[in-house]
Computed example of a mutant assay.
Amino acid sequence: MEGRTRPGTAFGLVPEERRRLEAAASRRIQDPDVTYLSARLEGAELRLRQARRRRLIRWLQQPSVLYRDGLTIVMAADTDGTLLHLESTAQVLTRLQRHNIGPGTRLTLEETGIHAVSAAVELGRSMFTRGREHTLCLFRDWSCFCMPVKDGYGETAGYLALTVPKHVSLSYLYPLTGGLVREAERELAGRRHVLTSIERQLAAFRLTGREMEIAKYWLLDYDYKQIGQALGISPNTVRVMIASIHGKLGVASKASMILKVLEIV
């Protein structure tokens, strides 16, 4: 029986939850045999979301033996289940692209039915799904464990999920996912410390609220375009405001601004 190898029954769906999620999914999903997922964000909206989760994605891109076994897929999703980043072997990623699964794919309950990511988003907790528990046949050869990732303020910053073929031993899936999430949360908590420190240091220069926002991103090495995407303003506006910030600090470049701010510590 598939459920016996589940890494902890606390992470599965109880009958009442399953009935509720199945009812919600059935209102939108008419064909569980679909093999091409059409719901996908692209362009500026996707880039904006990725910019907001830039630190999490960068951390996920670090070299790891996880992605070299030819089996494991590591995913980062936004708070609504939109896929932001995938790590696996080139062969696996190519296979997923044939099903239109990649950054921007909406792994929501309404679009892709029940699986670990959509259930975790809906229920706000860690979730494990396997085989025929998935609504779409496309996912039924896989097992997936998904956990929320908290930022330095205790808010959900997104979700990390590990997916393996359903025949693979699952004994490592929960501790491995949990370890990845803890490392990611340390990274995000570290960013909170950095941002708090930067805010304290910049306060001496009497920047406006918007200038303070831009200055923090600038010191964290975002470029004009990335700052604009994160704050919903044009790169040219960012350029003009950075010139103003440099003027208030009495510097001419990002490098000299960093040195100037560090002098205050």
Rank of each mutant, 00 (worst) to 15 (best):
Leu109Asp: 08
Cys137Val: 13
Gly158Lys: 07
Ala120Ser: 02
Tyr172Asn: 11
Ala10Cys: 10
Ile264Pro: 08
Met257Lys: 12
Lys166Met: 10
Leu37Trp: 02
Leu220Lys: 07
Arg27Phe: 01
Arg18Tyr: 02
Glu87Tyr: 01
Arg239Asn: 08
Glu22Arg: 14
Ala76Arg: 01
Asp80Arg: 07
Ser38Arg: 15
Arg132Met: 07
Ala157Met: 05
Arg55Phe: 02
Arg186Met: 15
Gly154Phe: 05
Val168Phe: 08
Ile258Gly: 14
Thr82Pro: 09
Glu133Met: 04
Ala24Glu: 12
Asn100Cys: 03
Pro32Glu: 07
Asp141Pro: 13
Ile214Asn: 00
Ser118Phe: 04
Leu207Cys: 15
Pro175Ser: 00
Met75Glu: 10
Arg27Asn: 07
Arg47Ile: 12
Arg192Glu: 10
Glu185His: 00
Gly158Leu: 13
Ala25Asn: 05
Leu66Cys: 09
His115Leu: 03
Glu87Asp: 14
Leu66Asp: 08
Gln97Ile: 08
His134Ser: 10
Ser143Thr: 12
Gly131Leu: 15
Arg125Asn: 01
Lys225Val: 14
Lys248Trp: 02
Asn236Ser: 07
Phe128Glu: 12
Gln62Asn: 08
Glu111Thr: 00
Arg27Pro: 11
Glu87Arg: 04
Arg6Pro: 11
Arg6Thr: 13
Ile264Thr: 10
Leu123His: 03
Ala23Pro: 14
Arg53Leu: 00
Gln30Leu: 10
Cys146Gly: 01
Glu45Pro: 11
Leu207Asn: 09
Asp78Glu: 01
Ala76Lys: 04
Arg19Trp: 07
Met241Leu: 09
Thr105Glu: 11
Arg186Gln: 14
Ile242Leu: 03
Gln201Leu: 06
Leu219Asp: 01
Thr237His: 12
Ile258Thr: 15
Trp218Ser: 05
Cys144Arg: 13
Ile245Asn: 05
Gly43Tyr: 05
Leu93Tyr: 01
Thr156Ala: 13
Ser64Val: 04
Val149His: 03
His99Phe: 00
Glu110Tyr: 04
Leu173Glu: 13
Met241Cys: 11
His134Pro: 07
Arg4Asn: 14
Thr9Trp: 01
Met241Trp: 12
Ile114Phe: 01
Arg106Trp: 02
Asn236Arg: 14
Ala215Gly: 02
Glu111Met: 00
Leu262Gly: 04
Gly113Tyr: 03
Ala25Gly: 02
Arg95Gln: 13
Gly131Ala: 12
Ile57Lys: 04
Leu136Val: 05
Glu185Gly: 01
Arg28Pro: 01
Leu123Tyr: 03
Lys248Asn: 03
Ala119Thr: 11
Ser169Arg: 14
Gln201Trp: 03
Phe205Lys: 13
Thr237Lys: 12
Leu173Val: 10
Val240Thr: 15
Glu87Pro: 13
Glu42His: 04
Leu176Thr: 10
Gln61Trp: 06
Val65Phe: 14
Leu41Ser: 04
Gln229Glu: 12
Asp223Lys: 14
Phe145Ile: 06
Leu138Glu: 08
Ser197Cys: 09
Ala119Val: 06
Thr105Asn: 06
His193Ser: 08
Asp221Ala: 06
Gly179Asp: 05
Gln229Ile: 15
Gln30Asp: 12
Glu185Phe: 01
Ala184Tyr: 05
Leu84Glu: 11
Ile29Val: 03
Leu180Ala: 04
Leu71Phe: 04
Phe205His: 05
Arg27Met: 09
His246Ile: 15
Arg210Phe: 01
Gln50Asn: 13
Arg130Ala: 05
Thr196Glu: 14
Leu176Asn: 11
Ala119Ile: 09
Val14Phe: 11
Tyr159Glu: 15
Arg47Asp: 07
Met127Arg: 07
Arg191Lys: 12
